[in-house]
Structure formats: structure tokens, C-alpha cells
Design a protein around this nucleic acid. Structure first.
Lengths: 351, 351
DNA sequence: AGCGCCTCTACAATCGATTGCAGAGAATTT
DNA sequence: AAATTCTCTGCAATCGATTGTAGAGGCGCT
């Protein structure tokens, strides 16, 4: 009755209880091999497993099979309001397939990111979600490729053979620019994201292309890249633009946090939003509808990004699916931070 | 020269390269057993390990030693702005000790939480951080205790023998109440958190005690518990209170999200904040300083909670430290949502 | 009856690192 | 010089699940 070592139940224990060999028990519990076991024996095994609350030991299984049902995620800041909902959705989608998410936060250090990839690889993760990749020659991505680890980029594009899930950043900036132009703005400046990040580059190009398509000028100096996606960095860049761009009536920002910084800069310059100047963001973070004035911004589908990225990765893990990129469509959310330019000012010097 | 299978380097490979037996290599690489190995041999092993980029296989190590250098975390919503910074800080503190964080998000379902504990236990986690525990008889906590898994509660207290890191919720509510009273408010209602959660209970009690200490009445019906910590739930509870409490001049809310809901309710009732009514929150979530008006709230030290919880858990894992609870002091952050009551109204009916 | 085939089960090796134990030499003591 | 200790290294078992292979028994066929 009393087992000498009442450790957690293992396969041998279940097999003994069912009166079969461990290998038979293993096959009876695995749906893929169950057909190799006679029905009565399989029934006894399953009954015993259920009764004892058996769970296969993940370490042993991982050691033997090489798979771990773990997926690593590299993000720059778990608390980042953009990545948090993406991770939540990805974790939910992975859980449906029996995978758990191992989150690693290397911050903005690419070397540390590569180090984390090595650590995750040593933990035998089945694949990785990378949200930290810079535009070119990222060490973390290189580390994945070198090890043959399936990887999917999120909100970052990384060249040819790498699958990625991104929002259409060019289209997103075009939405913002066209919205401002429709309100009557002609003198629009751009608070850009960090140049090494693909979102920074894409959104900047999207801004310039959309302006060109509308026949609006972008004088030199009317685009300023922030050094990071942060409120303080946004304030710094926006302050520069306000001082440097005569007659500017709108700031199209590459990111909501940058837009919040732009709010600070405008407030400091005594410019009221949207009466004196309009501001738009990008991402539609939580709570930006509650700030004053509510931020007009470009919404990217965070949950869907996480879900799609997870599915894409699972497909690659299971069957080595091709490396197609998924591009999701952003939408414009019009709120209170954008309005028509001050009468007569939008046209100043244009004709 | 060409190895037949250029798999990832394992201990045998390193040992061969250094001309020793794997067991010797193992000892040479483990600081605790290095003294058993002669210096020259140990040097060769370490050099070979470094040169080949050797990392011990986590699954094999875990299988043999029973430890995994993994810590599980159960949170209700990864994207929750309160828990995200806690997790980030905990992950950083754990990483310093070589542990990684496995995040599981069972939502608000206690049964699912217990299921997740079983899954994490099967993955041999060394310990768990529980942020989902309800006040009494939580299945997840019970599952930990049954398995003898070290666990630390975060932002929730769970009875005697369980270590926990919490903010002093009673003191926090007292800060808010005393602040409102100092401004002249006497008719204060409380938008409470969910009753089954320890924060909901503690903050409610803190509110009532602080009011009593100041000699202020809390008539029946002036406390309304929201059904969950959410904006919609906050609006519902606040609307009830506004309709039910004649002459109310301030709403002390158990949580920032509830306070945001209270904003919505006040807006709908045509009450301006803080002119017609004051509102306070709890937690000091990111961005609540940017909303209109900026939210007066009680700041709890999220980063420190995460760090302390991680350290407490590590202590328990390493040396079975005692189960003392850590209580952190909150601070009041005064912003624009609280002000003096409308002239003459704060005293209405009081004398 | 004899043969082969088919179904089912058990055996044993394997994944990679750790660790108790034993033994080979060297160093020290008597 | 012999005996004893000490230092170091190798051997082999172990953790728990998976899986290739072999063999036992039952069935149908000629």
C-alpha cells in the first residue's frame, strides 16, 4: 500500500499498475502509436494514468525526443504596451498546441539577445519568436539560423528567407498622412523611429512616399529620427522639429510613445493640440484614448499579430512550412489630436 | 577531422577534445566540484568548452538533478499593466541567478490555474510566482503545496505559511482617504475591487478604517464592489454609486482601471473632475499621468515587488528560507483628479 | 499438419549530464 | 623499504520516456 518513495508518478508506475511493460504504456498513451496496443491493455493503461494523475516528465521526454514543447520569445521589454498583447495572444495560440512560452527580455542589447538565443537553444526550445531584431545582420537572428532553429519575426522584417508577421507600416503612415492632408494640412513633419529598426525605416519611407503622392513637400530637416521609442526621445525630436520647421501644422509620429513626447514638446512650446498643431501616433496602445486630447493614431492588430506569428511558427516546427511573410493591414483611429490647421496657416507659403 | 554527426556540442565532445573522461569534464566545469580535478586537466577542459561553445543540455541536466533553472509565473493577463512591470523585474532578478521565467496566463479561471501548475510541475520548475491567487482555498496554491513546490504570492496574501510580497493595501487606501479629507471632502464613496481577491478586501477594509479614524461616516450602500478590475466594471459600479449616494463629492477607487471607468461614469453623468467630483485610483499604472485630468493615485512599487518576490523565491529554493511576508509601503501621487469639493457641498448635511 | 503472416508485447538501447565508488599512482610516514 | 594516506581519474549507474527490433502466440491458408 505504501510505496517506499512516493515521488511523482512516472511511466513505470503506470505500467506496473496496468500490468504491462513501460514501453507498452508509452505506446498506449501516445495517440500516434495507440493502434499498436490491444484495446484492453490500452484501456487499463489509460485508466491507470488517469487515476494516478500521470504526466510525462518534460525533461525526460525532451531529452529523448529532442523536442521540448517550449517556444522562446525575445522582446525588448516585457512591460512594453505594444508587445504585451502580442505575447498574450501568442501564448494563447501556442498553448492550444501544448507549447509554453519562455519569455526572455534582453532589452535593446543585440549581443545579449544572441546570448539569450544560445541559452534558449540549450533549453531545447522548439522555435523562437523574435521581436527584437534590428534591420540588418542581427546577431540573435544569425544565432537562430546557425542552429537551424525555426524563428518568426514579429513587427520587424528581416530580409528574405525569414518568416515575419508585420503590420503594413508604409500603408499605416499613408493613412495618417492622408488623414492630415484631408483636414487641410500641407506642412507636416515626421517624428521618426530609430533608424536601425525596420519599423523606423518603413514608417519613414511610408511618410515620404505618401507626402510625395499627395504632392506635398518634405523639406530637408522636416524628418527627425528619435534615438529610441520613448516618451523622452519623442519630446527631444519633436522639440527639434518645432524649432526647425517654420509653419509646421502637424507632426506625424512613428509611434504612440513618441507622440506622447510630442505632446510634451508642444505643451512646452505653448502650442495647443489640435488648435495650433495636430499630432498623430502609431500602434494604438492601451489608454491613448484616455489622454488629453485623445490621440489620433494608426491601429495595428496586436492580438492577430501574436496569433499569426504563433501559428506560423508552429507550422514551421511541425512541417517546415515555407517562409512567407504575413502583412496585416492597419486602420486609422480618428480622435481628438488631429483637426484642421489654423485658418490660413495651412496654406502659408504654398502658393 | 570531420565528425560524422556535427550535432550541438555535448559533454562527451568536450571531454574528448580535452583528453579526459566526461565525468572529469563535468567536474571541471562545475565550480562546486572543480577542486577535485587537477589544474592542468581542468584548464584543458575549460578551454575546450569555451572554444567549442559548449552549453550543458538543460533537459539532461534537469532529468539528472531534478532542478531545471526554470521558474513558473501565473498571472491573470500578461498584458495587464500592473503585472507586466512586476514580471519584468522578477525576470531580471531571476536571470541573475541563471533562472528563466515561464509565464502562464490562466486568465481568471482558478481551475485552469491549477491545471497550469500541474503542467509547470511536469516541466520541473524549481518554484512558482503566483499572482492569481484568490483569497481562500485557491486550487493553484493548493496544487503547489501538495507537490511541495516553493511558491511566492505576489500582490495577494494567502494565509499563514505562504510567503508573499504585497503592497500595504490598507495603508494605501488610508493615504487616498486622508488626502481627500484634507482637501475638505466628507462624503466619500468607494469603488471596490472584486470581493474574492485579497486586494479587493484589504483596500475596502482600509477605506472603511481610514474613514472611521477620521470620524467620517460610510453609510450603507456607499461601497460598491466591481465584479472585476476593468474599466467597464468600474463604470458600472461608479454609476451605481453616483445614483445611490446623495451629495457624494469623491470616489476612492480600488484600482486605476476602475478609476478610469469612474471617469466614464462621471462624464456620462455630466460631472466634471475634479470640479464636481474627485476621483482617486490605486497602482499608478503607466500613462495615467497623461489622461485628462491626470489621475491622483496610490503608487505601489511594482519593480520592487517583482524583485523581492524573485529573491524570496530563490531563497526558498536554495535554502528553504522561512515564509515571511514582505509588505511594501505605497506612496500617494497627487495629480489633477482630486481637488477641494464644490464650495459648501462638502459639508452638506454634515452638521 | 505445416507454413507463413499478423498482432501484440517485452527487451534493451538511447538521449546527455551527474555522481557514488573504486582504483591507480604519487606523496608521505614509520 | 614498506605501509599508509592523499589526489586524481575513470567506470558505471542513474534520471524517465521513446522506439527499433525480436519473439511469442493466434489465425488463416494450402
Amino acid at each position: 500500500m505504501t510505496t517506499p518513495t512516493p515521488r511523482s508518478v512516472n511511466l513505470r508506475r503506470v505500467a506496473d499498475e496496468a500490468g504491462v511493460h513501460p514501453s507498452t504504456a508509452s505506446r498506449a498513451l501516445n495517440p500516434a502509436t495507440r493502434h499498436l496496443v490491444a484495446a484492453p491493455a490500452a484501456g487499463r493503461v489509460q485508466e491507470a494514468a488517469a487515476r494516478l494523475g500521470y504526466r510525462p516528465d518534460a525533461a525526460a521526454m525532451s531529452l529523448r525526443t529532442g523536442r521540448s514543447r517550449l517556444v522562446g520569445a525575445l522582446v525588448p521589454g516585457i512591460a512594453n504596451p505594444v508587445f504585451a498583447p502580442i505575447l498574450a495572444a501568442a501564448a494563447a495560440a501556442l498553448a492550444e498546441d501544448g507549447h509554453a512560452l519562455l519569455v526572455a527580455d534582453p532589452g535593446d542589447d543585440p549581443e545579449r539577445a544572441a546570448e539569450f538565443v544560445a541559452e534558449l537553444a540549450a533549453r531545447r526550445v522548439d522555435g523562437l519568436l523574435l521581436a527584437t531584431v534590428s534591420l540588418r545582420d542581427d546577431p540573435a537572428l544569425a544565432a537562430c539560423l546557425a542552429r537551424g532553429l525555426p524563428a518568426v519575426l514579429i513587427n520587424r522584417s528581416g530580409g528574405e528567407g525569414v518568416p515575419a508577421v508585420v503590420s503594413d507600416d508604409r500603408a499605416g503612415m499613408a493613412l495618417a498622412v492622408r488623414h492630415l492632408a484631408a483636414l487641410g494640412h500641407r506642412r507636416i513633419a515626421h517624428v521618426g523611429g530609430p533608424a536601425p529598426l525596420s519599423t523606423g525605416l518603413q514608417r519613414r519611407e511610408g511618410f515620404e512616399e505618401a507626402m510625395a503622392a499627395l504632392g506635398l513637400p518634405v523639406p530637408p530637416g522636416w524628418v527627425e529620427a528619435a534615438t529610441a521609442y520613448g516618451r523622452a526621445e519623442g519630446e527631444a525630436a519633436a522639440s527639434l522639429l518645432l524649432a526647425r520647421c517654420p509653419g509646421v501644422t502637424a507632426l506625424a509620429c512613428a509611434n504612440d510613445l513618441l507622440a506622447l513626447g510630442a505632446y510634451d514638446a508642444c505643451r512646452r512650446a505653448g502650442l495647443r493640440i489640435p488648435a495650433a498643431i495636430s499630432v498623430t501616433g502609431h500602434n494604438d496602445m492601451p489608454l491613448v484614448d484616455m489622454i488629453e486630447p485623445p490621440l489620433t493614431t494608426v491601429r495595428i492588430p496586436h492580438e492577430e499579430m501574436g496569433r499569426r506569428a504563433a501559428r506560423l511558427l508552429l507550422d514551421r516546427i511541425h512541417q517546415g512550412a515555407p517562409a512567407g511573410a504575413v502583412v496585416l493591414a492597419p486602420t486609422l483611429v480618428e480622435r481628438g489630436s488631429s483637426g484642421p490647421p489654423r485658418a490660413g496657416e495651412g496654406d502659408a507659403g504654398s502658393l
